[in-house]
Design a protein around this nucleic acid. Structure first.
Lengths: 342, 342
DNA sequence: GTGAAAGCGCTAACAG
DNA sequence: CTGTTAGCGCTTTCAC
C-alpha cells in the first residue's frame, strides 16, 4: 500500500506549532509576518527530515486554480501538433504550468466533451485547434470569461484570442508558384472537415490563385479526403486524376499527412516528380527535405505561434478572462524544393 | 471575472435537500441507497437547469486520486514518442484518465524534478522513458509503492514493471543484415547519454554482430553524438568517417533523429546510398519509406508497447502499488528498404 | 510572532 | 429514504 502521505499537519504537530505557521514558511510569507529566522529554519529542517511534499491538489483546490493548461488538437502524433505541443510545454513550464494534451480525431462531439472535462478539472486555460463548426461551445466559454486562445484554426467572428497563419496567402503562393513553373491542371487534395478555417482558407487560396491566373476550371480538380481514411482515399482519387486526357500536371496537398499519402500514391504509380507531376504541400516537416524528390512546402512559424498563444493565454489567466482579445495572423514561408521545379 | 461556479451545495440548497443526497445521485449510488426516482429526477433536472458541473479537483482531493497519469519522455516532438503519447492517451481515456506529458531533453535533473512535481500533483501513476543513470529516485518510488512502469528504456535490476523491445537483437539483426550484404567497415552513431538502456543495448548488438562475423575493429567506428547537438555533430563525424583509406562502407544510426541527420550529411556530401555507403536505422518513421533512398529500419511495435504499459500501470493503480511486477520485452522487426541493398 | 478557525467542493460513514 | 457530520490538505483572515 502507498504509505500515508505526510501532510502539513504532521509537520506542524511534530514541531508543536500550528499549520498556519508552516504554511507561511513554505509560501515564503514568513518574513512579512515576522516569523523568527530560528522558527523558519526549524520548519525547513523538519520538512526535509520528514520529506514533506505539499499536496498540490489540495493547494489548488483552495486557491481555485490548477496550474494546468489544456491543449486540444486533432492528433498529437501529427508532427505539426507534436512540435507545437513541445514548445508550449516548455513555455508553460517556465511559468509553473503543466499541459494536458488531448486529441479529437476531428470529432466535434469529442472536442466538446474534452472541453467540458478540462473545465471540470479546473484547467486554468485552454489552447484549442478546433474542429468546431458551431460556435456555441465557445460562446459559453467566453461568457464565463474562461481563458481561451484558438491556435492554428480560428473563428474570426468569435470575440476571442487567436493566433494563426495566413493560410489563404500561403496556399495562394504555393499554387502560384506551380503556375509560374508552367503547370496548368493543378489538383488539390483537401481534408475533411472542410469547414475548419485552415483547410477552407487554403482551398480559397488555391481557387483564387487559379482564377487570378486565368485557369478557369474552378473546383473541378479539388478533392476532399476524409480525415479517417487518408491513405486509401488519396490513392483512389489520385489514380483517377492521373488518367485520361485531362490528367493533372500538379498537385497541392493541403497538409503534411495528405502530402505523405500523395507521395506514397506517386511511388506506387511510378509517377516521376516533378516531370510527370509536380507536388507542393502545406506544412513543412523535417523529412520533406530528404524525400525523393524533396518536397516544396509552406512552412509555418510554429515557435512564434506558440509564443503568441501563451502570451495571450497568460494575459487572460492573470486578468481572469478580462484581457483584451487579441488576434494575430502570422506569415508563412514557401520553401521551394525539387518536387515543383523541373 | 469568471462567474462564481455553482457547487453541489447550491444544488442541494435550491432543492431543499442535503448535499449528500445530491452527491449520491450524481455518483449513481442513489439506487443502492433507495432514493426515490422522483427525487432523483428532481436532482438531475436542477443540475441541468443550473448547469452544474462537479469540480473534479475537489472530488479527487477527497478521493485521494487525480485520474491523471504522467508521461515522461526525452522529447515529445520525437515521432516515436508522439506516436506513443497518442496511443497512451487513447487507452487512458477509455479508463477516464488524462495524460500530463513532460519532456526532459535527457536532463537527469529535470527528469527528477518532473517526477517530484507529478507526485506532488497526485498523479496516479507514471510512465517513464528514463534517462536516469542512478536508480535511487526509482527506489524511492518503489518503496512508496507508487504505480510506475518504465517504457522503452528499462533498468533490469530494478524491481519494477517495464516494457521494452529487444534492442540488442534489433540492432544485431540490422548490422548483420549489412554484413550479409557485404559491407565490412560499418560505423555506428550512438546518441548520448549512452548509459540509457536502449542506446547501450543497441551498441552491444552492433558490437556483437561485428564480432560474430569476424569484423574485429571493435568500437573504432563507434561515435557518440550529443543529444543537444545532433545535426552538427553528425555532420562533423560523418565527414571524418567517409574520408581516407579506411573510409566506412555502411552506417548504423541508433535512432530516428540520428538517421535523419545522417541523411542530411549524406546529401550534403553527395554520397550515393547504398552504392557508396549503406544506411540502416533503429526506429521506423512513416516517411522513411519515402526518402531517397528509402531507409532500412528496425521497427518497434509501438501500440503493443503502450498496451502492455497501461495494462501494467492500471494493475498497479488498482492494487495500490501491490501488483506483481511484470517485465516484458517485445520483438522488433527489420524492415529492409533500399538504403542497404545494392 | 503565532494560532484558531473557516472554508475550497466533494464523498462517505453513520444516524435516524 | 434522507440528513448530519467529519474530513481530504491546504491558505488566509483575524485575533491575541
Amino acid at each position: 500500500m502507498i504509505k500515508k502521505k505526510i501532510s502539513i499537519n504532521d509537520i506542524a504537530r511534530s514541531l508543536g506549532v500550528s499549520k498556519t505557521l508552516v504554511s507561511l514558511v513554505i509560501n515564503n510569507k514568513s518574513d512579512i509576518h515576522g516569523i523568527s529566522k530560528i522558527t523558519q529554519q526549524k520548519v525547513w529542517d523538519k520538512i526535509k527530515e520528514m520529506n514533506y511534499k505539499p499536496n498540490l491538489m489540495a493547494r489548488n483546490l483552495r486557491l481555485g486554480r490548477s496550474n494546468t493548461i489544456g491543449l486540444i488538437v486533432s492528433d498529437i502524433s501529427n508532427p505539426f501538433y507534436s512540435r507545437m505541443a513541445r514548445h508550449i510545454e516548455d513555455l508553460a513550464e517556465k511559468k509553473g504550468y503543466n499541459l494536458i494534451i488531448c486529441s479529437t480525431d476531428e470529432k466535434i462531439d469529442k472536442e466538446i466533451a474534452l472541453i467540458k472535462m478540462l473545465k471540470n478539472r479546473q484547467v486554468d486555460g485552454l489552447i484549442i485547434s478546433s474542429s468546431q463548426k458551431n460556435i456555441s461551445e465557445f460562446n459559453t466559454l467566453l461568457a464565463e470569461n474562461y481563458p481561451l486562445v484558438l491556435v492554428d484554426r480560428c473563428i474570426p467572428k468569435l470575440k476571442t484570442n487567436y493566433v494563426t497563419v495566413d493560410n489563404t496567402k500561403g496556399a495562394y503562393e504555393a499554387v502560384e508558384h506551380l503556375i509560374k513553373q508552367g503547370y496548368e491542371r493543378i489538383a488539390a487534395f483537401a481534408i475533411s472537415p472542410v469547414h475548419v478555417s485552415t483547410i477552407n482558407d487554403r482551398i480559397q487560396g488555391y481557387l483564387k490563385a487559379l482564377k487570378d491566373h486565368k485557369l478557369n476550371y474552378g473546383n473541378a480538380y479539388l478533392r476532399e479526403i476524409p480525415f479517417d481514411n487518408v491513405k486509401a482515399a488519396v490513392k483512389k482519387e489520385f489514380k483517377k486524376l492521373i488518367e485520361g486526357k485531362n490528367k493533372i500536371q500538379a498537385l497541392f496537398a493541403i497538409n503534411n499527412n495528405i502530402a505523405t499519402a500523395c507521395m506514397e500514391a506517386i511511388n506506387e504509380n511510378r509517377i516521376k516528380v516533378p516531370h510527370d507531376l509536380a507536388l507542393v504541400c502545406f506544412d513543412d516537416v523535417d523529412l520533406f527535405k530528404l524525400t525523393s524528390p524533396t518536397i516544396t512546402a509552406v512552412a509555418q512559424p510554429i515557435d512564434e505561434i506558440c509564443e503568441n498563444a501563451l502570451k495571450f493565454l497568460f494575459a487572460e489567466i492573470s486578468s481572469k478572462g478580462a484581457a483584451e482579445k487579441k488576434k494575430i495572423t502570422l506569415a508563412t514561408k514557401l520553401i521551394i524544393r525539387r518536387s515543383s521545379v523541373l
